[in-house]
């Protein structure tokens, strides 16, 4: 079975004249957002440099970035739409199309690959009945295969909608995660304990986090070659 779909384009180009998804009256910033924009603009010598922050804000507001949302960001910073569009399409974390309520980014980069990242990805695909890159019919879940998320010691792992990391995945853990998400419960922030801290301090050094985990390798039955 092929792990990779190299035929699929990396960036889906919009149609020639995409229909506007967000009505004009919603394409405005609230006062609070306006304040945040001014604050971010003031951090850079060139206010246009705040475009990445604005795109993040727009994505949080609308869920994804249709052309009109990108245009709003561009207009706010008085820059060309083409330039803002160029930025939005360069970075993979900006969603150019509508996604599910929860986006499950499964890391399969080499450490995760070795520890069973593809097992997890295929299990999710099978369980949700979709391929990677697709969204379930009820609009709840999108499954994606992503590059290294910088958590190689607790592989395999995934990230939920550009937010919390879920470490040391097993099939059971995926089941629990999906059930929790269906109940609207996002996974908590998990602090992964350093092995030397375990030895020298008897556990995680942070007292202000609820959830901690250790770096571990998955049970052999879970791992794949």
């Amino acid at each position: 079975m092929s792990h990779f779909d190299i035929e699929r384009p990396i960036v889906k180009l919009p149609e020639q004249q995409p229909e506007q998804q967000i009505p004009d009256e919603e394409l405005v910033w609230t006062d609070e957002e306006q304040e945040r924009i001014e604050e971010r603009k003031s951090k850079y010598p060139d206010p246009k440099s705040a475009i990445m922050d604005l795109l993040w804000m727009a994505q949080e507001k609308y869920g994804y970035l249709p052309p009109e949302a990108i245009r709003l960001c561009a207009n706010t910073l008085d820059m060309d739409y083409a330039r803002a569009y160029g930025v939005a399409t360069f970075y993979t974390q900006y969603y150019k199309e509508e996604k599910g309520k929860f986006v499950l980014d499964v890391c399969t980069c080499f450490s995760c690959q070795m520890m069973g990242g593809y097992d997890i990805l295929h299990y999710l695909e099978e369980k949700l009945g979709i391929h990677k890159g697709e969204t379930t019919d009820d609009g709840m879940f999108t499954v994606e295969e992503v590059e290294c998320l910088g958590c190689c010691g607790s592989a395999p792992m995934m990230q939920v909608t550009n937010g919390p990391y879920v470490h040391n995945l097993t099939k059971d853990k995926v089941d629990t995660l999906l059930d929790d998400l269906k109940d609207g419960k996002m996974p908590p922030f998990v602090s992964v304990t350093l092995p030397q801290d375990e030895d020298e301090m008897g556990g995680n050094r942070r007292s202000d986090v609820e959830a901690t985990e250790t770096y571990q390798t998955p049970p052999r039955s879970e791992a794949v070659k």
Partner: peptide
Amino acid sequence: SGHVNRPGVY
């Protein structure tokens, strides 16, 4: 990381 018993940052 990888096929070791105790992965992590040291």
